[in-house]
Design a binder for these strands. Structure first.
Length: 674
DNA sequence: CCGCCTCGAGTTCT
DNA sequence: CTCGAGGCGG
């Protein structure tokens, strides 16, 4: 095939793809590729056409802005078409745009107006003799839908404007749904069992297209007006910035983050600021629109095809992307849980390459109907952590495979079970090497024994070299053993040994946490130290005794008892003890406790928490909690409806505290500990 | 028994 | 950050 035929074929392919995605986006409101990918297709087509001008056809997607309007509403002709914007995705592309226009303007001084590119629905509002006459969607840019009735329900759209406004004019803006409104709307829909909107833009589009405007009225829609379409009977200012101030004075809602920039560097700074602060914007924005401020300059620059030369959309890095799910891998956790994760074809999302994503558990995978080989939409949830949003069902070939948890542990081959009513599958082999290694990693980690120099990597090296089989072995490592490893210099070895030594004196709560008892995190470990002053004491505790502690229930109690009963755990604790790791609460620690030496008695009902919990807090802070006021009692806490203890306290001259004074004392004492 | 809240466990990438 | 589970109050 000749070169030109290849190009022809590719152009046809890309056009077909774009037309299909246009339809999904504009007509169905259900896009299946991200905006970034759509933009990429459009760019490719444009490049091909620019290099082969004779291949441009009038029906090419580059020759129009969107899809045809839906006929259910009246059709509105736009006297001045609503056009789209060229995109920039990097500082280089922005600079290239700047150089082009700067050349065209012969190097005259240019200033810019920057604003956020709100991801909503573009509308045109026509006012005649001071009244809103027509509100229309953009449609294909030339003809849109008449949605006046619905737009009238948007409270921030003025239905009338002051007399000094031009007799006939059109403003343009973006109707959108704030993030909070979107969330609330979806919550309500979930309650009613209705399908959820995928994002605020879709929700706004759906709302504005309601045939019944009473439904639209219930949606918290808002608008930002971003420009004047046309005006008759009055001359408008000749700076875009001033037009915006003028529109504001007429009662239109203008985005508060609009800025006047004197240089292209200031534009870049504006962009950089908002890339960083994108999360804080209360509505969705997908970039920054940069416009030449001077209207005469705008007119001079004119249009290329369907895009103005005098403005550009500088897009934020995409936060969603699509890629292929190549395989589903399994990790075995410290507790034996089998944790599936997605191995993805690496893809850039939000400026970061994503190649893995957590899949939580088998049920979750099946609920989302994710299959091996699927194309999937991924996003970085809350800034950082990648997640699979959904599979793209329409891209399936039939070769995708449904995932099943293995019947045996992928690491040790032991039987895998899924306890009734639980979501997780578990490896049944407590000696499973994967679990053993994870337990060691947990032991040395930051919140636990915090052994500097031995992290995940070093734990693995030591484990695989056979130098340690469990956490207890860490304390018997010798200098020679460590030096025999690869990539361990003298310096790092002595660092490791000294941080192992230092870890022998961690608070008891850290030790309990580090042991990795299932269900015991840092909070519960801390709670336990309030009731047991040594590991021995804790190891002898009965389930009944443990359950007397508030927030310890039967499951946690059993977990603790079972842990100390296991031979391998006993051996680990033995190794720790022989190595002189402190397994008791520090004596000095107890004395330093802020409430040490004080004895509290509570009378009446407390608002903040039940009495046992208050007593637990007192004990945790080193105080004693009694039930009767005696001469030893130092404080009486007086709650609602106090009993006879109050009289007794007054008799003895015991200090009394109101509940709020008591809470304040607890707070101060807790702060002292930190 | 159900809903609410808090805690635990596992996770990605720079 | 997310999901699941444990604990607890109504």
């Amino acid at each position: 095939m000749g070169y030109i035929n290849k190009v022809k074929k590719r152009i046809a392919e890309v056009r077909e793809a774009i037309n299909y995605h246009n339809y999904r986006y504009y007509v169905l409101d259900s896009p299946e590729i991200s905006d970034a990918e759509y933009d990429e297709l459009m760019r490719e087509l444009k490049q091909l056409e620019d290099a082969n001008l004779d291949l441009i056809t009038p029906d090419s997607p580059t020759q129009r802005v969107g899809a045809a309007p839906v006929e259910a509403f009246g059709v509105v002709e736009h006297p001045q078409p609503l056009l789209s914007l060229a995109n920039a995705f990097s500082d280089e592309e922005l600079e290239a745009w700047y150089r082009r226009i700067s050349n065209l303007l012969g190097g005259r001084n240019i200033d810019f107006v920057c604003e956020l590119k709100i991801d909503g629905l573009a509308v045109a509002l026509t006012y005649v003799n001071g009244l809103l006459e027509v509100g229309a969607t953009r449609g294909d840019g030339y003809r849109g839908e008449n949605i006046t009735q619905n737009l009238r329900t948007v409270k921030s759209i003025p239905l009338s404007v002051p007399k000094e406004a031009p007799p006939r004019f059109e403003v343009r803006g973006e109707v959108y749904l704030p993030k909070t409104g979107f969330k609330k709307l979806n919550e309500e829909r979930a309650k009613e069992g209705l399908p959820l909107f995928a994002n605020p833009r879709n929700a706004a589009a759906g709302s504005v297209r309601q045939l019944d405007s009473r439904i639209t009225a219930q949606r918290p829609l808002d608008i930002f007006v971003y420009g004047l379409g046309w005006a008759e009977g009055k001359t408008a200012p000749d700076k875009h910035w001033e037009i915006m101030q003028y529109l504001k004075s007429l009662g239109f809602k203008i985005n508060p983050n609009i800025a006047l920039c004197q240089t292209i560097d200031e534009v870049k700074k504006y962009y950089a600021k908002w890339v960083k602060e994108e999360e804080t914007i209360p509505y969705e924005a997908d970039g920054v629109v940069v416009k030449i401020n001077s209207i005469p300059f705008q007119e001079e620059l004119g249009y290329v095809g369907r895009e103005p030369r005098w403005a550009i959309a500088y897009k934020f890095p995409a936060v969603q992307g699509t890629t292929r799910l190549l395989e589903i891998g399994i990790n075995v956790g410290r507790t034996g849980s089998l944790n599936p994760y997605a191995i993805l074809e690496p893809v850039q999302v939000g400026g970061v390459t994503i190649s893995h994503a957590a899949l939580h558990n088998e049920e979750d995978i099946h609920r989302k109907d994710i299959r091996i080989g699927d194309w999937v939409v991924i996003q970085r949830a809350g800034e950082v952590i990648p997640e699979i949003v959904e599979p793209i069902v329409s891209r399936r070939t039939g070769k995708e495979k449904i995932f099943h948890m293995p019947k045996t542990c992928p690491v040790c081959g032991a039987e895998v079970i899924k306890p009734e009513g639980e979501a997780m599958h578990r490896c049944t082999n407590a000696a499973c090497p994967a679990q053993a290694l994870e337990r060691i990693k947990h032991f040395v980690s930051l919140g636990a024994m915090d052994i500097e120099g031995i992290g995940e990597k070093m734990s693995q090296v030591l484990f695989e070299a056979g130098l340690i089989k469990d956490a207890g072995d860490l304390y018997y490592l010798t200098k020679d053993q460590l030096l025999s490893l690869e990539r361990t210099a003298d310096k790092s070895v002595s660092n490791m040994l000294s941080s192992i030594e230092k870890s022998k004196d961690r608070p008891l709560s850290r030790v309990i946490f580090a042991l990795g008892i299932p269900g015991i995190g840092d909070e519960t470990a801390e709670l336990l130290t309030g009731h047991y002053t040594s590991l021995d004491e804790l190891s002898r505790a009965t389930p009944e005794k443990l359950q007397e502690i508030p927030s310890i229930g039967p499951k946690i109690a059993d977990s603790i008892v079972a842990f100390f009963r296991q031979e391998q755990n006993k051996r680990i604790i033995d190794k720790l003890r022989k190595a002189d790791v402190r397994l008791e609460a520090e004596k000095a620690e107890a004395k330093e406790l802020p409430l040490a030496g004080l004895e509290f008695v509570i009378t009446g009902r407390l608002e903040a928490f039940p009495r046992p919990e208050a007593e637990a807090k007192i004990k945790a802070l080193g105080g004693k909690a009694g039930s009767d006021v005696t001469r030893k009692t130092t404080h009486l806490v007086v709650g609602e409806d106090p009993g006879s203890k109050l009289a007794r306290a007054q008799e003895l001259g015991t200090k009394t505290l109101t509940e709020s004074e008591f809470l304040e004392l607890l707070k101060q004492s807790e702060n002292k500990l930190k």
